[in-house]
Nucleic acid binder design. Structure first.
Length: 539
DNA sequence: TGTGATAGCTCG
DNA sequence: GTACGAGCTATCACAC
């Protein structure tokens, strides 16, 4: 018996599982609109043991395309746009019960309302887009976003294999390290306290030990990594605390939860949920667990990636877009220096350093130029740049001025984004997705933030468009040619696949070519291929 | 016992 | 006040 069939004292006869299956098949043979239909498809495809169901449309995605800032929950949209308060899940399902325990008549009302409101909203959104003469967004939905639902569904269902015994060993090591650090910290502090409590830690550091107070938070002393690093030489306890923080983070956020999930899973594979409407810019987000923020920047952190492995006889493939946002900056601004640097496959940060500081100093100042390049895309100001580089605000200001003098086309292009954003109230990506900003009702501080967000959204959002197109194309190729390859993860500018070891090279190059040629811009796109037995080897 | 705010950390 | 976009864990205060 399928576990969601209703079961309670005096439950009426229900249709057979076979009848339920054929009814669902019939429904999916016509045009099905869902609200977050990927969620439902997980259950339905498992129940039917059939992944070939067709997705027609999703009202949640339309709501997000219309305004990526708005609330997307069905009940909220119903209330706001249709003036109809929906039956709440909480009221329908009594405390401690499941949906299977809900009386059929109530369950039917709840489910029917869900379907009815979804259809209402779908039609409303189509009208809305017509009225706003934004029918191109309907096309974008049909051609890109709706097909993308199944691309993501396939990835989520596959999951990625975890090496449980590796994580077990790592867990033991980390627990021992934490125990040792805890003892040292108590000794150096002169008392026992909760190291994870910023409140208690603040008292120890700044009152008991009388260390110099650097920064305050809303509620007390700041003890973040920057503050602690500034106190490195002030007391022996500081390096211990920094190490404790790093290791405890790995333990509590990664090792323990991932191990638990892998143990719960039959094939030792863990499955994230990608949220297609998860950001205002068009990027994905990933949750339960988030597999887009697995550590990589420190050696001990990067060890976590060793736990993500290819199955027996298989390899993992990683393909990442190189400098995709800066390439988009070159594409949009058409700045000669940037365009030529990318056309000739030059080191973009070094080229920037040459322009800013001259040939002689370029090599040693490359990393400054790199910070400037990234900062640009974020709408950086002199304050933050000086903080990041450890220079004075004045020097930072000069570097920024020098940049805009040297790249006047970039300056005027940024200006045009901001002007148009203020005039129209939104900015657009490559695929014409919009992000709205309410300048009218904003304080000067918010307006400045909107200007930065406008600039950033064009690049971040367009990069998201490109990789989305690539993912759909690769998914299509894998299906059509019945390739023995699984797309597993997307980490914003990077895709991870699992394939048969002997095919890794060929398939990797095939996918990389698709990514390189997914769209013709004013500069070439470039993706890099890596092959390995675990995720830590893909760099 | 549950919830929301805060601080802090991870990633691109 | 001052760099963009996310999600997770732990603590703490407060309500039930």
């Amino acid at each position: 018996m399928f576990h969601s069939a209703h079961f309670y004292l005096g439950v009426p006869d229900q249709i057979s599982e076979e009848d339920a299956k054929s009814a669902i098949r019939k429904i999916f043979n016509s045009k099905v609109v869902g609200h977050n239909i990927k969620f439902d498809l997980h259950f339905v495809t498992r129940f039917l043991e059939d992944d070939s169901l067709e997705v027609y449309a999703d009202s949640m995605i339309l709501a997000w395309l219309i305004n990526s800032n708005s609330s997307l929950a069905l009940d909220k949209l119903s209330d706001a746009l249709l003036g109809h308060k929906m039956l709440s899940f909480k009221d329908t399902v009594k405390k401690g019960e499941t949906f299977a325990g809900v009386e059929l008549v109530d369950a039917c009302k709840y489910a029917a309302e869900d379907a009815y409101i979804t259809a209402k909203l779908y039609n409303l959104f189509l009208e809305k887009l017509e009225l706003q003469s934004a029918t191109h967004l309907i096309d974008e939905a049909k051609e890109v976003e709706f097909p993308f639902i199944k691309t993501l569904l396939t990835m989520e269902k596959e999951g990625i294999e975890i090496d449980g015994s590796f994580l077990e060993k790592f867990l033991v090591e980390v627990k021992e390290t934490l125990a040792g650090l805890t003892t040292s910290i108590y000794e150096l502090a002169g008392s026992e306290f909760n190291i994870n409590s910023t409140k208690q830690l603040g008292l120890i550091l700044f009152e008991t030990l009388e260390l110099p107070v650097g920064k305050k938070t809303k509620t007390g002393y700041s003890t973040d990594e920057k503050v602690l690093s500034g106190l490195l030489d002030a007391h022996e306890i500081i390096p211990k605390l920094l190490e404790y923080r790093e290791v405890y983070k790995l333990y509590s956020t990664y090792i323990e939860p991932l191990l638990k999930l892998s143990k719960e899973s039959k094939r030792s594979r863990i499955h994230t949920s990608f949220v297609q409407t998860g950001t205002a810019t068009g990027r994905l987000s990933s949750k339960n667990p988030n597999l887009q923020n697995i550590p990589t920047r420190t050696p001990i952190g990067a060890k976590i990636r060793q736990a993500f492995v290819a199955g027996e006889g298989k390899k993992l493939i990683g393909i990442d877009y190189s400098q995709i946002e800066l390439r988009l900056l070159a594409h949009y601004s058409q700045d000669d220096v940037l365009v030529n640097a990318f056309k000739n496959d030059k080191d973009i940060h070094l080229q920037t350093a040459v322009v800013l500081f001259g040939e002689e100093e370029a090599a040693q100042k490359r990393s400054i130029a790199k910070t400037v390049n990234f900062g640009l895309l974020y709408g950086m100001g002199p304050k933050k740049l000086s903080d990041t580089l450890g220079i004075t605000t004045k020097e930072a200001k000069e570097i920024i001025e020098k940049y805009f003098e040297s790249f006047p086309t970039v300056k005027s292009y940024f200006r045009s984004i901001v002007d148009s954003s203020k005039e129209k109230g939104y900015v657009e990506t490559l695929l014409k997705r919009r992000r709205y900003f309410d300048y009218e009702n904003a304080t000067p501080m918010f307006r400045a933030a909107y200007e930065r967000e406008s600039v950033n959204s064009v690049f971040q959002g367009s990069a998201a468009d490109l990789i989305k197109l690539s993912m759909n194309k690769i998914h299509e190729v894998i299906e059509k040619e019945n390739l023995n390859a699984k797309m597993l993860l997307q980490i914003h500018d990077e895709l991870i696949f699992e394939v048969n070891a002997e095919e890794a090279e060929v398939l990797g190059n095939r996918f990389r070519d698709i990514m390189d040629t997914i769209m013709e811009l004013n500069v070439p796109l470039k993706a890099s291929l890596n092959i390995g037995d675990n995720w830590s080897e893909l760099k």
